[in-house]
Design a protein around this nucleic acid. Structure first.
Length: 559
RNA sequence: UGGGGCGUCGUCAAGUGGCAAGACACAGGGUUUUGAUCCCUGCAUUCAGAGGUUCGAAUCCUCUCGCCCCAGCCA
Protein backbone atom coordinates (compact mmCIF):
# COMPACT_ATOMS: atom_id res chain seq x y z
CA UNK A 1 0.00 0.00 0.00
CA UNK A 2 1.53 3.25 -1.03
CA UNK A 3 1.22 6.44 0.90
CA UNK A 4 -0.13 8.92 -1.54
CA UNK A 5 -0.12 11.83 0.82
CA UNK A 6 2.50 12.36 3.42
CA UNK A 7 0.09 13.30 6.13
CA UNK A 8 0.52 12.51 9.74
CA UNK A 9 -0.68 13.51 13.15
CA UNK A 10 0.84 16.42 15.01
CA UNK A 11 3.47 14.32 16.75
CA UNK A 12 4.66 12.88 13.50
CA UNK A 13 4.83 16.39 12.12
CA UNK A 14 7.04 17.49 15.01
CA UNK A 15 9.32 14.49 14.67
CA UNK A 16 9.61 14.85 10.93
CA UNK A 17 10.57 18.46 11.42
CA UNK A 18 13.15 17.55 14.05
CA UNK A 19 14.66 14.97 11.76
CA UNK A 20 14.69 17.44 8.87
CA UNK A 21 16.52 20.01 10.97
CA UNK A 22 18.92 17.39 12.34
CA UNK A 23 17.85 17.91 15.91
CA UNK A 24 19.41 15.08 17.97
CA UNK A 25 21.54 14.41 14.88
CA UNK A 26 18.38 13.28 13.16
CA UNK A 27 18.04 10.41 15.56
CA UNK A 28 14.65 9.28 16.88
CA UNK A 29 14.23 7.28 20.07
CA UNK A 30 10.99 6.68 21.92
CA UNK A 31 9.85 4.56 24.79
CA UNK A 32 6.74 2.90 26.12
CA UNK A 33 6.91 3.32 29.92
CA UNK A 34 4.26 1.29 31.77
CA UNK A 35 4.16 1.01 35.51
CA UNK A 36 3.96 -2.73 36.30
CA UNK A 37 0.96 -2.33 38.56
CA UNK A 38 -1.69 -3.92 36.37
CA UNK A 39 -2.46 -5.37 33.00
CA UNK A 40 -2.37 -3.55 29.70
CA UNK A 41 -5.59 -2.47 28.01
CA UNK A 42 -6.53 -1.19 24.59
CA UNK A 43 -5.70 2.36 25.71
CA UNK A 44 -2.11 1.28 26.23
CA UNK A 45 -2.10 -0.17 22.75
CA UNK A 46 -2.52 3.35 21.40
CA UNK A 47 0.61 4.48 23.18
CA UNK A 48 2.50 1.32 22.26
CA UNK A 49 1.63 1.67 18.58
CA UNK A 50 2.41 5.37 18.59
CA UNK A 51 5.81 4.96 20.17
CA UNK A 52 6.88 1.93 18.19
CA UNK A 53 5.52 3.27 14.92
CA UNK A 54 7.25 6.61 15.27
CA UNK A 55 10.53 4.90 16.04
CA UNK A 56 10.13 2.55 13.11
CA UNK A 57 9.01 5.22 10.70
CA UNK A 58 12.11 7.28 11.37
CA UNK A 59 14.52 4.35 11.64
CA UNK A 60 14.86 4.74 15.36
CA UNK A 61 14.32 2.52 18.35
CA UNK A 62 11.58 2.21 20.93
CA UNK A 63 12.39 0.97 24.42
CA UNK A 64 10.05 -0.88 26.71
CA UNK A 65 10.87 0.66 30.05
CA UNK A 66 9.11 -0.22 33.25
CA UNK A 67 8.46 2.81 35.41
CA UNK A 68 8.90 0.83 38.59
CA UNK A 69 9.60 3.39 41.28
CA UNK A 70 6.72 2.52 43.58
CA UNK A 71 7.29 -0.98 45.01
CA UNK A 72 4.08 -0.79 46.99
CA UNK A 73 2.05 -1.38 43.86
CA UNK A 74 4.27 -3.26 41.50
CA UNK A 75 4.62 -6.96 40.87
CA UNK A 76 6.61 -9.33 38.73
CA UNK A 77 3.47 -10.92 37.30
CA UNK A 78 2.56 -7.59 35.75
CA UNK A 79 6.01 -7.26 34.26
CA UNK A 80 5.66 -10.68 32.67
CA UNK A 81 2.19 -9.99 31.37
CA UNK A 82 3.15 -6.63 29.90
CA UNK A 83 6.18 -8.03 28.14
CA UNK A 84 4.25 -10.88 26.63
CA UNK A 85 1.44 -8.59 25.55
CA UNK A 86 3.76 -6.14 23.80
CA UNK A 87 5.33 -9.05 21.95
CA UNK A 88 1.94 -10.42 21.06
CA UNK A 89 1.00 -7.07 19.59
CA UNK A 90 3.92 -7.56 17.29
CA UNK A 91 6.56 -5.19 18.59
CA UNK A 92 10.18 -5.89 19.26
CA UNK A 93 12.15 -3.87 21.77
CA UNK A 94 15.22 -5.99 22.39
CA UNK A 95 15.18 -6.51 26.12
CA UNK A 96 13.11 -4.66 28.66
CA UNK A 97 14.59 -1.78 30.61
CA UNK A 98 13.73 -0.73 34.14
CA UNK A 99 13.80 2.61 35.89
CA UNK A 100 14.93 0.63 38.92
CA UNK A 101 18.14 -0.16 37.06
CA UNK A 102 18.90 3.57 37.35
CA UNK A 103 18.34 3.83 41.10
CA UNK A 104 22.06 4.23 41.78
CA UNK A 105 22.40 6.97 39.21
CA UNK A 106 19.19 8.62 40.31
CA UNK A 107 20.58 8.78 43.82
CA UNK A 108 23.70 10.52 42.59
CA UNK A 109 21.65 12.97 40.53
CA UNK A 110 19.61 13.79 43.62
CA UNK A 111 22.82 14.61 45.47
CA UNK A 112 23.81 16.84 42.58
CA UNK A 113 20.66 18.83 43.14
CA UNK A 114 21.43 19.12 46.85
CA UNK A 115 24.94 20.27 46.12
CA UNK A 116 23.64 22.90 43.76
CA UNK A 117 21.32 24.16 46.47
CA UNK A 118 18.33 23.01 44.45
CA UNK A 119 17.04 20.33 46.78
CA UNK A 120 16.59 19.93 50.52
CA UNK A 121 15.48 17.39 53.03
CA UNK A 122 12.10 18.38 54.38
CA UNK A 123 10.98 16.99 57.72
CA UNK A 124 7.39 18.06 57.51
CA UNK A 125 4.83 15.27 57.83
CA UNK A 126 2.62 14.63 54.85
CA UNK A 127 -0.31 16.65 56.13
CA UNK A 128 1.93 19.64 56.74
CA UNK A 129 3.41 19.42 53.30
CA UNK A 130 -0.07 19.50 51.92
CA UNK A 131 -1.03 22.47 54.06
CA UNK A 132 2.11 24.38 53.08
CA UNK A 133 1.47 23.70 49.43
CA UNK A 134 -1.44 26.12 49.29
CA UNK A 135 -4.38 25.65 46.97
CA UNK A 136 -5.23 26.18 43.33
CA UNK A 137 -5.89 29.83 44.00
CA UNK A 138 -3.61 30.56 46.96
CA UNK A 139 0.18 30.37 46.90
CA UNK A 140 2.03 28.00 49.17
CA UNK A 141 4.45 28.77 51.99
CA UNK A 142 8.07 27.80 52.28
CA UNK A 143 8.86 24.77 54.38
CA UNK A 144 10.70 25.67 57.60
CA UNK A 145 13.36 23.17 56.50
CA UNK A 146 13.90 24.84 53.16
CA UNK A 147 17.13 26.56 54.15
CA UNK A 148 19.04 23.67 55.65
CA UNK A 149 22.71 23.71 54.75
CA UNK A 150 24.05 21.60 51.95
CA UNK A 151 26.05 19.56 54.43
CA UNK A 152 23.05 18.89 56.61
CA UNK A 153 20.95 17.99 53.57
CA UNK A 154 23.60 15.59 52.32
CA UNK A 155 23.89 14.01 55.72
CA UNK A 156 20.16 13.65 56.19
CA UNK A 157 19.66 12.30 52.69
CA UNK A 158 22.31 9.69 53.16
CA UNK A 159 20.76 8.68 56.49
CA UNK A 160 17.38 8.43 54.76
CA UNK A 161 19.00 6.06 52.35
CA UNK A 162 20.60 4.10 55.18
CA UNK A 163 17.26 3.43 56.75
CA UNK A 164 17.76 5.53 59.87
CA UNK A 165 14.32 7.13 59.65
CA UNK A 166 10.74 6.00 59.76
CA UNK A 167 8.54 6.17 56.71
CA UNK A 168 6.98 9.59 56.32
CA UNK A 169 9.40 11.47 58.54
CA UNK A 170 11.51 13.03 55.80
CA UNK A 171 11.42 13.67 52.08
CA UNK A 172 13.85 15.13 49.64
CA UNK A 173 12.28 18.07 47.86
CA UNK A 174 13.23 20.24 44.94
CA UNK A 175 13.67 23.88 45.83
CA UNK A 176 11.72 25.65 43.12
CA UNK A 177 8.92 28.07 43.95
CA UNK A 178 6.21 27.69 46.55
CA UNK A 179 4.23 30.50 44.95
CA UNK A 180 4.20 29.08 41.45
CA UNK A 181 0.75 29.03 39.85
CA UNK A 182 1.74 25.56 38.67
CA UNK A 183 1.40 23.39 41.73
CA UNK A 184 3.86 20.87 40.39
CA UNK A 185 6.57 23.44 40.85
CA UNK A 186 5.83 24.09 44.54
CA UNK A 187 8.85 22.19 45.82
CA UNK A 188 7.83 18.73 44.58
CA UNK A 189 9.01 15.65 46.44
CA UNK A 190 11.95 13.91 44.80
CA UNK A 191 12.47 10.98 47.17
CA UNK A 192 10.36 9.43 49.86
CA UNK A 193 11.10 6.76 52.44
CA UNK A 194 9.30 3.49 51.75
CA UNK A 195 10.12 0.31 53.60
CA UNK A 196 8.85 -1.95 50.89
CA UNK A 197 10.74 -4.67 49.09
CA UNK A 198 11.02 -3.97 45.39
CA UNK A 199 10.25 -6.73 42.85
CA UNK A 200 13.65 -6.20 41.27
CA UNK A 201 15.93 -4.50 43.77
CA UNK A 202 14.63 -6.42 46.76
CA UNK A 203 15.47 -4.68 50.02
CA UNK A 204 18.43 -2.74 48.71
CA UNK A 205 16.57 0.54 48.95
CA UNK A 206 14.29 2.10 51.49
CA UNK A 207 14.00 5.38 49.62
CA UNK A 208 12.39 5.57 46.20
CA UNK A 209 12.39 8.37 43.63
CA UNK A 210 9.14 9.98 42.54
CA UNK A 211 7.80 9.76 39.01
CA UNK A 212 8.68 13.26 37.83
CA UNK A 213 12.30 12.89 38.80
CA UNK A 214 12.64 9.28 37.70
CA UNK A 215 10.97 9.62 34.37
CA UNK A 216 12.84 12.52 32.85
CA UNK A 217 16.19 11.23 34.05
CA UNK A 218 15.46 7.75 32.73
CA UNK A 219 14.51 9.25 29.39
CA UNK A 220 17.74 11.22 29.31
CA UNK A 221 19.89 8.25 30.29
CA UNK A 222 18.36 6.21 27.49
CA UNK A 223 18.87 8.95 24.96
CA UNK A 224 15.18 9.24 24.28
CA UNK A 225 14.48 12.06 21.83
CA UNK A 226 10.70 12.27 22.03
CA UNK A 227 8.98 11.41 25.27
CA UNK A 228 5.33 10.88 24.45
CA UNK A 229 2.81 10.87 27.23
CA UNK A 230 -0.81 11.64 27.91
CA UNK A 231 -2.44 15.02 28.44
CA UNK A 232 -2.52 14.99 32.22
CA UNK A 233 1.24 15.36 32.26
CA UNK A 234 1.12 18.64 30.42
CA UNK A 235 1.37 20.50 33.72
CA UNK A 236 4.40 18.40 34.60
CA UNK A 237 6.41 19.41 31.55
CA UNK A 238 7.93 22.48 33.25
CA UNK A 239 9.15 20.17 36.01
CA UNK A 240 10.44 17.61 33.49
CA UNK A 241 12.42 20.41 31.91
CA UNK A 242 13.54 21.88 35.24
CA UNK A 243 15.13 18.64 36.38
CA UNK A 244 16.92 18.07 33.13
CA UNK A 245 18.07 21.69 32.90
CA UNK A 246 19.63 21.43 36.34
CA UNK A 247 21.22 18.00 36.11
CA UNK A 248 24.29 16.87 34.25
CA UNK A 249 22.37 14.44 32.10
CA UNK A 250 23.52 13.41 28.61
CA UNK A 251 20.60 14.92 26.74
CA UNK A 252 17.27 16.66 27.11
CA UNK A 253 14.37 14.78 25.53
CA UNK A 254 11.25 16.61 24.46
CA UNK A 255 8.02 15.69 26.20
CA UNK A 256 4.96 15.78 23.95
CA UNK A 257 1.47 15.11 25.23
CA UNK A 258 -1.47 13.53 23.42
CA UNK A 259 -5.03 12.61 24.40
CA UNK A 260 -5.55 9.16 25.80
CA UNK A 261 -8.06 6.81 24.25
CA UNK A 262 -11.63 6.46 25.42
CA UNK A 263 -14.17 4.06 23.97
CA UNK A 264 -17.89 4.04 24.54
CA UNK A 265 -19.69 1.19 26.28
CA UNK A 266 -16.60 0.28 28.26
CA UNK A 267 -14.17 1.62 30.84
CA UNK A 268 -10.51 2.17 30.27
CA UNK A 269 -8.76 2.79 33.54
CA UNK A 270 -6.77 0.34 35.59
CA UNK A 271 -8.66 1.32 38.71
CA UNK A 272 -12.08 0.62 37.24
CA UNK A 273 -10.98 -2.57 35.55
CA UNK A 274 -9.47 -3.72 38.82
CA UNK A 275 -12.77 -3.08 40.54
CA UNK A 276 -14.68 -5.15 38.00
CA UNK A 277 -12.28 -8.01 38.60
CA UNK A 278 -12.22 -7.65 42.39
CA UNK A 279 -15.97 -7.44 42.73
CA UNK A 280 -16.42 -10.47 40.53
CA UNK A 281 -18.35 -8.76 37.75
CA UNK A 282 -16.02 -10.50 35.35
CA UNK A 283 -14.05 -13.70 35.71
CA UNK A 284 -10.60 -12.15 35.73
CA UNK A 285 -8.23 -9.77 33.98
CA UNK A 286 -8.45 -11.83 30.85
CA UNK A 287 -12.24 -11.99 30.76
CA UNK A 288 -13.08 -11.65 27.07
CA UNK A 289 -15.56 -8.88 27.83
CA UNK A 290 -12.83 -6.64 29.20
CA UNK A 291 -10.89 -4.18 27.05
CA UNK A 292 -7.68 -5.55 28.52
CA UNK A 293 -5.33 -6.78 25.85
CA UNK A 294 -5.26 -10.21 27.47
CA UNK A 295 -9.05 -10.26 27.49
CA UNK A 296 -9.25 -9.18 23.89
CA UNK A 297 -6.71 -11.76 22.91
CA UNK A 298 -8.78 -14.45 24.53
CA UNK A 299 -11.84 -13.09 22.81
CA UNK A 300 -10.17 -13.55 19.43
CA UNK A 301 -8.97 -10.06 18.63
CA UNK A 302 -5.92 -10.17 16.41
CA UNK A 303 -2.86 -7.98 16.87
CA UNK A 304 -3.24 -6.60 13.38
CA UNK A 305 -6.84 -5.56 14.02
CA UNK A 306 -5.76 -3.73 17.13
CA UNK A 307 -2.90 -2.05 15.32
CA UNK A 308 -5.21 -1.07 12.50
CA UNK A 309 -7.61 0.44 14.99
CA UNK A 310 -4.89 2.46 16.68
CA UNK A 311 -3.80 3.72 13.28
CA UNK A 312 -7.31 4.62 12.28
CA UNK A 313 -8.24 6.67 15.34
CA UNK A 314 -5.28 8.97 14.94
CA UNK A 315 -3.48 11.04 17.53
CA UNK A 316 -4.52 14.47 18.71
CA UNK A 317 -4.92 16.55 21.83
CA UNK A 318 -8.68 16.49 21.78
CA UNK A 319 -10.40 14.36 24.37
CA UNK A 320 -12.70 12.01 22.60
CA UNK A 321 -14.74 8.91 23.02
CA UNK A 322 -14.40 6.56 20.12
CA UNK A 323 -17.30 4.45 18.96
CA UNK A 324 -16.67 0.82 19.80
CA UNK A 325 -18.17 0.10 16.39
CA UNK A 326 -14.97 1.36 14.85
CA UNK A 327 -12.96 -1.18 16.82
CA UNK A 328 -15.30 -3.92 15.68
CA UNK A 329 -15.08 -2.70 12.13
CA UNK A 330 -11.29 -3.01 12.18
CA UNK A 331 -11.65 -6.47 13.66
CA UNK A 332 -14.11 -7.65 11.01
CA UNK A 333 -11.95 -6.24 8.27
CA UNK A 334 -9.06 -8.39 9.42
CA UNK A 335 -11.08 -11.48 10.22
CA UNK A 336 -13.11 -11.36 7.02
CA UNK A 337 -9.84 -11.39 5.13
CA UNK A 338 -8.13 -14.11 7.10
CA UNK A 339 -10.49 -16.33 9.05
CA UNK A 340 -11.24 -19.76 7.60
CA UNK A 341 -14.96 -20.45 7.24
CA UNK A 342 -16.83 -23.21 8.99
CA UNK A 343 -20.38 -24.09 9.90
CA UNK A 344 -21.74 -24.34 13.38
CA UNK A 345 -25.27 -24.41 14.70
CA UNK A 346 -25.64 -22.54 17.97
CA UNK A 347 -29.27 -23.39 18.76
CA UNK A 348 -29.97 -26.65 16.97
CA UNK A 349 -33.22 -27.61 15.34
CA UNK A 350 -33.33 -31.16 13.97
CA UNK A 351 -34.25 -31.57 10.32
CA UNK A 352 -35.14 -34.95 8.85
CA UNK A 353 -34.90 -35.26 5.12
CA UNK A 354 -37.56 -37.79 4.40
CA UNK A 355 -36.58 -38.68 0.86
CA UNK A 356 -32.88 -39.05 1.64
CA UNK A 357 -31.68 -42.68 1.87
CA UNK A 358 -31.43 -44.19 5.31
CA UNK A 359 -27.86 -44.89 6.47
CA UNK A 360 -26.31 -42.94 3.64
CA UNK A 361 -23.58 -40.42 4.26
CA UNK A 362 -21.99 -38.44 1.50
CA UNK A 363 -19.07 -36.08 1.56
CA UNK A 364 -19.42 -32.60 0.17
CA UNK A 365 -16.78 -30.03 -0.53
CA UNK A 366 -16.84 -26.42 0.58
CA UNK A 367 -14.53 -23.46 0.23
CA UNK A 368 -12.41 -22.53 3.21
CA UNK A 369 -12.85 -18.93 2.08
CA UNK A 370 -15.20 -18.10 -0.80
CA UNK A 371 -13.15 -15.11 -1.94
CA UNK A 372 -9.80 -16.83 -1.55
CA UNK A 373 -9.61 -20.14 -3.40
CA UNK A 374 -5.94 -20.38 -2.47
CA UNK A 375 -7.06 -21.16 1.07
CA UNK A 376 -8.35 -24.46 -0.25
CA UNK A 377 -11.40 -26.56 0.43
CA UNK A 378 -12.73 -28.67 3.23
CA UNK A 379 -14.95 -31.72 3.36
CA UNK A 380 -18.20 -31.93 5.23
CA UNK A 381 -20.57 -34.84 5.58
CA UNK A 382 -24.26 -34.88 4.81
CA UNK A 383 -26.90 -37.40 5.84
CA UNK A 384 -30.58 -37.89 6.43
CA UNK A 385 -30.60 -35.98 9.70
CA UNK A 386 -29.06 -32.58 10.10
CA UNK A 387 -29.28 -29.59 12.39
CA UNK A 388 -30.16 -26.07 11.35
CA UNK A 389 -30.41 -22.88 13.38
CA UNK A 390 -33.67 -22.35 15.23
CA UNK A 391 -33.62 -18.75 14.05
CA UNK A 392 -33.65 -19.95 10.47
CA UNK A 393 -37.13 -21.33 10.77
CA UNK A 394 -40.37 -19.45 11.27
CA UNK A 395 -43.73 -21.11 11.35
CA UNK A 396 -45.45 -18.00 10.12
CA UNK A 397 -42.75 -16.03 8.36
CA UNK A 398 -43.13 -12.57 6.90
CA UNK A 399 -42.81 -12.15 3.15
CA UNK A 400 -39.17 -11.07 3.12
CA UNK A 401 -37.96 -13.91 5.35
CA UNK A 402 -35.63 -15.83 3.08
CA UNK A 403 -35.28 -18.86 5.30
CA UNK A 404 -37.22 -21.94 6.24
CA UNK A 405 -40.95 -21.95 6.74
CA UNK A 406 -43.77 -24.36 5.94
CA UNK A 407 -43.60 -25.12 2.24
CA UNK A 408 -40.56 -22.94 1.67
CA UNK A 409 -37.42 -23.98 -0.13
CA UNK A 410 -33.93 -22.92 0.94
CA UNK A 411 -30.40 -23.85 0.05
CA UNK A 412 -28.28 -25.68 2.57
CA UNK A 413 -24.89 -24.10 2.14
CA UNK A 414 -22.67 -26.19 -0.14
CA UNK A 415 -25.26 -28.99 -0.11
CA UNK A 416 -28.80 -29.28 -1.42
CA UNK A 417 -31.98 -27.38 -1.87
CA UNK A 418 -34.52 -28.55 0.69
CA UNK A 419 -38.19 -27.82 1.17
CA UNK A 420 -39.98 -27.83 4.48
CA UNK A 421 -42.85 -30.28 4.36
CA UNK A 422 -43.91 -30.69 7.94
CA UNK A 423 -43.40 -29.12 11.33
CA UNK A 424 -43.15 -31.47 14.29
CA UNK A 425 -44.14 -30.15 17.72
CA UNK A 426 -44.16 -31.51 21.25
CA UNK A 427 -47.05 -31.43 23.70
CA UNK A 428 -46.34 -27.82 24.64
CA UNK A 429 -46.58 -26.83 21.02
CA UNK A 430 -42.87 -26.21 20.68
CA UNK A 431 -41.28 -27.01 17.38
CA UNK A 432 -38.99 -29.97 17.91
CA UNK A 433 -38.05 -30.89 14.38
CA UNK A 434 -38.77 -30.34 10.74
CA UNK A 435 -39.50 -32.85 8.03
CA UNK A 436 -38.09 -31.76 4.70
CA UNK A 437 -37.45 -33.14 1.28
CA UNK A 438 -34.34 -32.53 -0.74
CA UNK A 439 -33.85 -32.25 -4.46
CA UNK A 440 -31.15 -34.79 -5.44
CA UNK A 441 -30.44 -32.81 -8.59
CA UNK A 442 -29.17 -29.83 -6.60
CA UNK A 443 -26.04 -31.33 -5.09
CA UNK A 444 -23.66 -28.50 -4.28
CA UNK A 445 -26.53 -26.04 -4.17
CA UNK A 446 -27.39 -25.25 -7.75
CA UNK A 447 -30.70 -26.08 -9.39
CA UNK A 448 -30.33 -27.46 -12.93
CA UNK A 449 -33.63 -25.90 -13.90
CA UNK A 450 -32.28 -22.52 -12.95
CA UNK A 451 -34.91 -21.78 -10.30
CA UNK A 452 -33.92 -19.04 -7.93
CA UNK A 453 -33.62 -19.75 -4.25
CA UNK A 454 -32.95 -16.62 -2.29
CA UNK A 455 -32.06 -18.08 1.06
CA UNK A 456 -29.00 -20.05 2.03
CA UNK A 457 -28.66 -21.37 5.56
CA UNK A 458 -25.97 -23.20 7.44
CA UNK A 459 -26.35 -26.69 8.81
CA UNK A 460 -24.43 -29.52 10.47
CA UNK A 461 -24.69 -33.28 9.90
CA UNK A 462 -26.50 -34.73 12.91
CA UNK A 463 -24.50 -37.91 12.56
CA UNK A 464 -21.10 -36.29 12.52
CA UNK A 465 -20.46 -33.19 14.56
CA UNK A 466 -18.52 -31.70 17.44
CA UNK A 467 -20.51 -30.69 20.46
CA UNK A 468 -19.28 -27.47 21.99
CA UNK A 469 -19.99 -24.67 24.37
CA UNK A 470 -20.18 -21.16 23.00
CA UNK A 471 -19.76 -17.89 24.85
CA UNK A 472 -21.67 -15.06 23.24
CA UNK A 473 -20.47 -11.66 24.35
CA UNK A 474 -22.22 -8.36 24.19
CA UNK A 475 -21.09 -4.91 25.31
CA UNK A 476 -20.12 -4.73 28.96
CA UNK A 477 -22.18 -1.63 29.75
CA UNK A 478 -25.66 -0.64 28.74
CA UNK A 479 -24.99 3.04 28.30
CA UNK A 480 -22.48 4.58 25.95
CA UNK A 481 -21.09 6.42 28.98
CA UNK A 482 -20.94 3.93 31.87
CA UNK A 483 -20.66 6.80 34.34
CA UNK A 484 -23.40 8.92 32.85
CA UNK A 485 -24.66 11.50 35.27
CA UNK A 486 -21.92 10.62 37.74
CA UNK A 487 -23.44 7.26 38.57
CA UNK A 488 -21.50 4.27 39.82
CA UNK A 489 -20.44 2.47 36.67
CA UNK A 490 -21.07 -0.96 38.18
CA UNK A 491 -24.76 -0.04 38.19
CA UNK A 492 -24.58 0.20 34.44
CA UNK A 493 -23.20 -3.26 33.74
CA UNK A 494 -25.04 -5.11 31.02
CA UNK A 495 -26.55 -8.21 32.66
CA UNK A 496 -26.58 -9.88 29.24
CA UNK A 497 -22.92 -9.27 28.46
CA UNK A 498 -22.35 -13.02 28.46
CA UNK A 499 -24.65 -15.72 27.21
CA UNK A 500 -23.42 -19.27 27.32
CA UNK A 501 -24.81 -21.91 24.99
CA UNK A 502 -24.00 -25.47 25.90
CA UNK A 503 -25.11 -27.78 23.15
CA UNK A 504 -23.84 -26.24 19.97
CA UNK A 505 -23.29 -28.54 17.00
CA UNK A 506 -20.22 -27.73 14.98
CA UNK A 507 -18.91 -29.29 11.80
CA UNK A 508 -16.41 -32.01 12.54
CA UNK A 509 -13.47 -30.15 11.07
CA UNK A 510 -13.56 -27.86 14.08
CA UNK A 511 -12.29 -30.69 16.24
CA UNK A 512 -8.85 -29.69 15.00
CA UNK A 513 -9.07 -26.02 15.96
CA UNK A 514 -6.08 -24.64 17.80
CA UNK A 515 -6.43 -22.37 20.84
CA UNK A 516 -6.86 -18.72 19.80
CA UNK A 517 -7.57 -19.71 16.23
CA UNK A 518 -10.46 -17.69 14.84
CA UNK A 519 -13.04 -19.06 12.41
CA UNK A 520 -15.96 -17.49 10.74
CA UNK A 521 -18.99 -19.56 11.55
CA UNK A 522 -20.85 -18.68 8.42
CA UNK A 523 -23.77 -16.33 8.86
CA UNK A 524 -23.13 -16.03 12.58
CA UNK A 525 -19.87 -14.35 13.33
CA UNK A 526 -16.27 -15.02 14.22
CA UNK A 527 -15.45 -17.51 16.92
CA UNK A 528 -12.18 -18.51 18.50
CA UNK A 529 -11.27 -21.56 20.50
CA UNK A 530 -10.89 -20.44 24.10
CA UNK A 531 -7.29 -20.80 25.18
CA UNK A 532 -8.20 -21.31 28.78
CA UNK A 533 -11.40 -23.26 29.36
CA UNK A 534 -11.40 -25.40 26.27
CA UNK A 535 -10.45 -29.07 26.35
CA UNK A 536 -10.34 -31.53 23.46
CA UNK A 537 -13.34 -33.37 24.82
CA UNK A 538 -15.25 -30.22 25.73
CA UNK A 539 -14.36 -27.44 23.34
CA UNK A 540 -15.33 -23.87 24.14
CA UNK A 541 -15.64 -21.21 21.48
CA UNK A 542 -15.82 -17.50 22.19
CA UNK A 543 -17.72 -15.30 19.83
CA UNK A 544 -15.21 -12.67 18.88
CA UNK A 545 -17.65 -10.45 17.04
CA UNK A 546 -20.84 -10.95 15.06
CA UNK A 547 -21.08 -10.48 11.34
CA UNK A 548 -22.64 -7.23 10.23
CA UNK A 549 -26.32 -8.00 10.24
CA UNK A 550 -28.55 -5.71 8.23
CA UNK A 551 -31.40 -8.17 8.57
CA UNK A 552 -31.31 -7.83 12.35
CA UNK A 553 -31.33 -4.09 11.84
CA UNK A 554 -34.47 -4.38 9.75
CA UNK A 555 -36.25 -6.59 12.24
CA UNK A 556 -35.02 -4.58 15.19
CA UNK A 557 -33.68 -7.70 16.81
CA UNK A 558 -31.10 -7.25 19.53
CA UNK A 559 -27.47 -7.81 18.63
C1' U B 1 -12.49 32.95 40.88
C1' G B 2 -4.78 30.46 39.95
C1' G B 3 -2.39 27.59 36.17
C1' G B 4 -2.37 24.26 31.90
C1' G B 5 -5.09 22.31 27.65
C1' C B 6 -9.08 21.43 24.05
C1' G B 7 -13.54 22.91 20.74
C1' U B 8 -13.94 21.01 12.27
C1' C B 9 -20.17 15.87 10.11
C1' G B 10 -23.62 11.17 14.74
C1' U B 11 -18.10 9.30 16.16
C1' C B 12 -12.84 9.78 15.16
C1' A B 13 -9.88 13.04 12.03
C1' A B 14 -7.06 15.95 7.90
C1' G B 15 -6.63 20.95 7.04
C1' U B 16 -1.28 25.80 9.17
C1' G B 17 -4.66 32.71 4.39
C1' G B 18 -6.94 30.61 -1.72
C1' C B 19 -13.22 26.38 -3.58
C1' A B 20 -14.03 21.72 4.03
C1' A B 21 -9.53 14.99 2.82
C1' G B 22 -10.39 10.19 4.67
C1' A B 23 -12.42 6.38 8.01
C1' C B 24 -16.52 4.45 10.97
C1' A B 25 -21.73 5.11 11.28
C1' C B 26 -26.06 6.18 8.49
C1' A B 27 -29.34 6.17 3.81
C1' G B 28 -30.23 4.35 -1.10
C1' G B 29 -28.80 0.98 -5.31
C1' G B 30 -25.98 -3.33 -7.73
C1' U B 31 -23.42 -8.31 -7.39
C1' U B 32 -23.71 -12.65 -4.26
C1' U B 33 -24.62 -20.37 -2.62
C1' U B 34 -22.94 -16.25 4.18
C1' G B 35 -29.40 -11.01 4.75
C1' A B 36 -21.60 -11.46 5.17
C1' U B 37 -17.93 -9.74 1.77
C1' C B 38 -17.43 -6.67 -2.56
C1' C B 39 -19.03 -2.47 -5.80
C1' C B 40 -21.48 2.23 -6.80
C1' U B 41 -24.18 6.75 -4.89
C1' G B 42 -25.54 10.23 -1.16
C1' C B 43 -24.08 12.39 3.59
C1' A B 44 -20.43 19.88 6.97
C1' U B 45 -22.39 26.63 1.49
C1' U B 46 -19.54 25.66 6.91
C1' C B 47 -15.41 24.84 11.19
C1' A B 48 -18.26 26.55 19.57
C1' G B 49 -20.34 31.94 19.25
C1' A B 50 -19.84 37.23 18.20
C1' G B 51 -17.00 41.05 16.24
C1' G B 52 -12.56 42.59 13.44
C1' U B 53 -8.19 42.38 9.68
C1' U B 54 -8.05 40.81 4.36
C1' C B 55 -9.69 40.75 -2.56
C1' G B 56 -10.13 36.20 0.24
C1' A B 57 -10.42 33.38 7.14
C1' A B 58 -11.61 26.80 9.95
C1' U B 59 -6.67 29.05 9.54
C1' C B 60 -4.59 35.91 11.75
C1' C B 61 -6.56 39.51 15.94
C1' U B 62 -10.24 40.62 20.00
C1' C B 63 -13.91 39.26 23.22
C1' U B 64 -17.48 35.52 24.84
C1' C B 65 -19.19 30.49 25.75
C1' G B 66 -18.41 25.26 26.70
C1' C B 67 -15.51 20.92 28.18
C1' C B 68 -11.07 18.45 30.42
C1' C B 69 -6.67 18.30 33.78
C1' C B 70 -3.76 19.97 38.33
C1' A B 71 -3.76 20.97 45.48
C1' G B 72 -0.31 11.94 46.26
C1' C B 73 5.46 11.06 50.26
C1' C B 74 0.79 7.45 42.87
C1' A B 75 2.29 7.03 37.82
Amino acid sequence: MEETINRGHFIETIIRQDVATSKNDGRVATRFPPEPNGYLHIGHAKSICLNFNMAQKFSGHCNLRFDDSNPAKEKQIYIDSIESTVHWLGFDYGSALFASDYFDQLYVFAKELIEKGLAYVCSLPAEEIRAYRGTLTEPGKNSPFRDRSTAENLDLFSRMKNGEFEEGTHTLRAKIDMTSPNINLRDPVIYRIKNAPHPRTGDKWCIYPMYDFTHCVSDALEGITHSLCSLEFEDHRPLYDWYLDNLSVPCHPQQIEFARMNINYTVLSKRKLQLLVDQGHVTGWDDPRLPTLEGMRRRGYTPSAIRKFCDTIGVSKKESRIDIGLLESCLREDLNENAPRAMGVLRPLKVIIENYPENKTETLTSMVHPQKPEMGTREITFSKEIYVEQDDFMEDPPKKFFRLGPGREVRLRSAYLVTCKQVVKNDQGRVTSLICTYDPATRGGNAPDGRKVKGTIHWVDAGNYVSARANLYDRLFMDEDPEKGGQDFTQNLNPASLETLTDCKLEKNLAHARPEQVFQFERLGYFCLDARDSTPSAPVFNRTVTLRDTWAKVTGKKR
